[in-house]
């Protein structure tokens, strides 16, 4: 079986979850969509590992499962419960233009993924690369277009799924210490953002980062 035959359905499902992560107004739905996306990411690694003789992909699958399916969602859901918030703050971009932006970014991500002149990328890995770029674009869009601190954090988690996929695509043979370092940074960044979200809510009474406007750009 070809790598792309397995990766295409999984990558497509990841994009569907990406849409829910970014667009769902309920924070818990976003968080659960993130868990689904991370599980699909683990699925991509396991599928590739079973098709090509690269044991590194099993390590990537294990680390993704521990950090992205267990630790990060637990941190996010715990903060949501602690703050007692159900819905995100009013987003900056209205719903319909936001949907249009999501689909445009998906097209852009895949266009780049398939058209960047990178001869090292084999066909199956092109799909992974395109998906990783799309997840990154949508993550950045979510962080800029949403005003809720928790939602921005979930979008960062989503962006980091894109990075994880990219690293596994391009740099899967790096030593384990490198991977551990990158993932530790990712988990710590999310933990710190969630802690800051709690402080923002306590100080300003809201999770909206756009209401914090004491400083000038």
């Amino acid at each position: 079986m070809q790598v792309e035959n397995v990766v295409i359905p999984l990558a497509s499902c990841m994009l569907v979850t990406a849409f829910f992560i970014v667009e769902s107004r309920r924070l818990r739905t976003s968080a659960y969509s993130y868990i689904a996306q991370s599980s699909l990411l683990v699925g991509v690694f396991l599928s590739v590992a079973s098709l090509i003789p690269e044991p590194h992909f099993y390590i990537w699958a294990i680390t993704a499962a521990i950090t992205k399916v267990l630790i990060v969602p637990w941190l996010v859901l715990r903060t949501i419960a602690k703050l007692g918030v159900e819905f995100e703050e009013k987003p900056v971009i209205p719903t319909i233009p936001s949907y249009i932006a999501d689909f445009s970014l998906m097209i852009l991500g895949f266009w780049f993924g398939f058209n960047l002149p990178l001869p090292i990328l084999k066909p199956g890995f092109r799909i992974c690369f395109g998906t990783s770029l799309t997840l990154m674009f949508l993550g950045i869009y979510g962080m800029a277009g949403k005003s809720c601190a928790i939602k921005q954090t979930i979008c960062l988690c989503h962006l980091e799924n894109g990075i994880h996929l990219l690293l596994a695509t391009l740099a899967y043979a790096t030593p384990i210490t490198v991977e551990v370092g990158i993932l530790t940074d990712a988990v710590l960044a999310i933990a710190i953002m969630l802690y800051l979200s709690t402080l923002i809510k306590r100080v300003s009474g809201s999770l909206s980062t756009y209401r914090l406007s004491s400083l000038r750009w």
């Binding site: 962080m143 601190a149 921005q152 960062l156 960044a189 710190i192 953002m193 800051l196 402080l199 923002i200 100080v203 300003s204 980062t209 914090l212 406007s213 004491s214 400083l215």
Partner: peptide, 12 residues
């Protein structure tokens, strides 16, 4: 508030 905003912007 100002310090938290600066910190958030910096981190993000």
């Amino acid at each position: 508030e100002g310090a938290l905003e600066a910190s958030w912007k910096y981190l993000l």
